[in-house]
Design a protein around this nucleic acid. Structure first.
Lengths: 344, 344
DNA sequence: CTGAAAGCGCTTACAG
DNA sequence: CTGAAAGCGCTTACAG
């Protein structure tokens, strides 16, 4: 491996000068010295050893992102925004998946501390026990205490700089949009367990309901269902079997649950959209590819991802910063206009 | 930050002993010394500085993966396999996206060399010019020459250890499956441009055709279409407009193109499946969520991802290793059985 | 088995 | 502006 020493020798300067010449922000170099060093570096194919640089300066050019599952398009969208923003700043992004295990998250964080990343990004809404929450918090605080930066992407639930996913606002807008389409009564399809993301969504739904007068059936599902396509299918099946035909639309907490609900509607011999509206949340599935297209809410996840990197790299501020983003309802065929509560 | 020195002092041993005690593979430590060091490390919350370790040993605990677009489920599946395998080995995975720009890939690789990752994984089939291919190859060889490992995930087109995505075999099996379902004549929907991935797919299709006697219409599309849903829509629309009604199925190079093709079939007033079969490739979309479900080919991408890490971490072998994986056709409603060429 | 010492490749006061 | 030197936090022969 060619080292700074080699470059310095080749350029006929000391290693200190070579180091300065290679640092674009350093001004204490004659331009001729800089030119010679740059030429030497190029001809030798020199690449600074960033580990060595990191042990000297204490700062790594990495931002570490912890997500539950890297296959989830929700996370992927966010990560994509982060990678682009990181690249603009000459940083690398490291991804770790916890596979949904809460305690694993703590373990992963501990491992990550070895890396001394410039910032640790925790993505996704937390649910789960208070004890795991406390353990997580302790680990993150320890990290910040050691001079690292912690940034949260998702909910406003941890005392660090946060890029907020606009779930509440998005859910509110969705109900408003449905009201404008003529829906007067909807039923929620949601996973069980208590996650902050779901809470935000419900809060937004309730706000929209209050604002528009839309009736929201906060039915407790007959069985516990997971946040997945199958969960949506199960919950919607139960609901339809109960025969709550006064419900004009199923409003699901995620797109995948909504897709499951659509399948359930079909299994019940009904047509999604025409007979009963279905709406999702997140707009990450290729909602145009299902039939009918799925009405959903775009949560600006790419911007959230970019913001996370911006927060991580900007000068630490004395007070906690919280970034807001816009949500946007995307109406598609799964929620056609209704005329005064009567099926079209 | 607490350092090894602090741990050693706390445990009442020298820093060398502390280092050995913390290394599970080192045997030259009394178990009592080790116990004291471990206790000290735990109570101090010590985490080894992996940059420092890396500058000492020259080896980083990172595997860097370069993909075109991190949002592509194809890549995501592969990355997920890699992350899991990496975690088992105590390694981290770094992701970089090139956003499909070939020369960007070279630039990214150059940046990555600074990181000195244990291995560089290049994922995805290459297309493009010979010049960019040459530049890429040069960069990778330089990296290997410096003692790094290069692993390719995708096609057999670069002279490094390779985990092969079973495109050829998968395409062959698909045609065989279609033949068994009664299809006698299919038309290909493929993107233009010349990529090794598409070439493999076509080779497999041709093999299947030879084996089964299925007629493959290697029609050149009327216009250039991209490898996307819209591309599939455009190509299929042209084809249907031409009125090649003797074609019994559209076989697309990717799932997204197939979804576009399905939409085109519908726009033409036909029903996908019942009137004309549609098949995709990769099985990464939630093919169950479209109606009818999309017949596709599972390419074992998660295994490919895991294999990449295995190749990257196993002892370097004097000869190049190529790993093979199985493909599996998943038949769904978009290709119902046909009775002797007559529509059911 | 153990510790002092050298060395990994950088950066950055410190004196010229 | 420039270079010799110290130091970042580790690991690992080298002598006990």
């Amino acid at each position: 491996m060619v080292t700074l020493r080699d470059v310095a020798k080749e350029a006929g300067v000391g290693v200190a000068t070579a180091s300065r010449a290679l640092d674009p922000t350093s001004e204490h170099v004659t331009s001729s010295a800089r030119a010679r060093v740059l030429a030497a570096a190029a001809s030798l194919g020199y690449r600074p050893n960033s580990s060595a640089r990191a042990t000297t300066t204490g700062a790594t050019p990495m931002v570490a992102i912890v997500v539950s599952d890297i296959r989830d398009p929700y996370n992927t969208e966010l990560i994509h925004g982060a990678i682009s923003a990181a690249r603009e700043r000459g940083l690398m992004v490291t991804i770790t998946g916890t596979d949904h295990a809460d305690d694993d998250e703590v373990r992963v964080l501990r491992t990550l501390r070895s890396q001394r990343p410039r910032a640790l990004v925790v993505a996704g809404a937390r649910g789960g026990s208070n004890s795991s929450h406390a353990a997580l918090l302790r680990e993150l605080e320890r990290y910040e205490h050691d001079g690292g930066r912690v940034v949260v992407a998702g909910e406003d639930e941890l005392p660090f700089d946060t890029a907020l996913v606009p779930r509440r606002e998005g859910a509110r807008q969705l109900i408003v949009a449905l009201a404008e389409l003529g829906y007067r009564s909807v039923s929620l399809i949601r996973p069980d367990g208590d996650s902050s993301g779901i809470r935000s969504w419900e809060t937004g739904i309730a706000e929209g309901a209050r604002q528009t007068g839309v009736l929201v059936d906060h039915v407790t599902h007959l069985r516990d269902v997971p946040m997945s396509r199958d969960g949506g299918y199960a919950a919607a099946s139960d609901l339809l079997r109960e025969g709550r035909r006064e419900v004009e639309a199923l409003v699901a907490a995620t797109d995948s649950m909504a897709l499951g609900a659509m399948a359930a509607v079909r299994s019940a011999g009904l047509t999604p959209g025409a007979d009963i509206g279905v709406a999702g949340f997140d707009d990450v599935v290729d909602a145009d590819d299902v039939t009918p297209g799925l009405t959903s809410v775009d949560l600006s996840l790419e911007s959230v991802g970019a913001s996370v990197v911006e927060l991580a790299t900007s000068a630490a501020s004395e007070r906690r910063r919280v970034r807001q983003f816009a949500a946007r309802v995307v109406v598609r065929g799964s929620t056609p206009p209704r005329v005064s509560g009567i099926r079209r």
